[in-house]
């Protein structure tokens, strides 16, 4: 993600108004940066934490992260953790924390 992007997005805002319903993956990622997220991996393991940063591979750094097994039970807690993007199934916002 280049540092130019936020500026470009701001410029495009009036045009995007016409297509209000559209929301690209990069729009989504910008909006969840710094927020609590749930990251589900292909293995079924889920991580919940604050999304500190991410890159184009969907590699992510989470803060105050918690690991939940496929059974939904808390398995571990990590202060900070790096998640390799190729394992990610989806990222979703986490409303409650």
């Amino acid at each position: 993600m280049s540092s130019e992007e936020p500026k470009a997005a701001a410029d495009a805002a009036p045009a995007a108004d016409a297509e209000k319903s559209k929301r690209s993956p990069s729009d989504f990622l910008k909006s969840v940066l710094g927020r609590p997220v749930r990251v589900k991996l292909n293995s079924g393991i889920e991580y919940r934490g604050v999304l500190a940063c991410l890159d184009g591979y969907l590699n992510m750094a989470l803060e105050q992260s918690e690991e939940y097994g496929p059974d939904g039970l808390l398995k571990a807690k990590y202060g900070d953790c790096f998640i390799r993007g190729n394992n990610v199934l989806y990222v979703s916002t986490q409303k409650r924390r």
Binding site: S43, Y47, K77, Y78, C81, I83, R84, N86
Partner: peptide, 15 residues
Amino acid sequence: RGDIVVLVSPPLRTG
């Protein structure tokens, strides 16, 4: 090998 890595964490507060 990088492709088998799922997660890396400084272990200070790992459960």
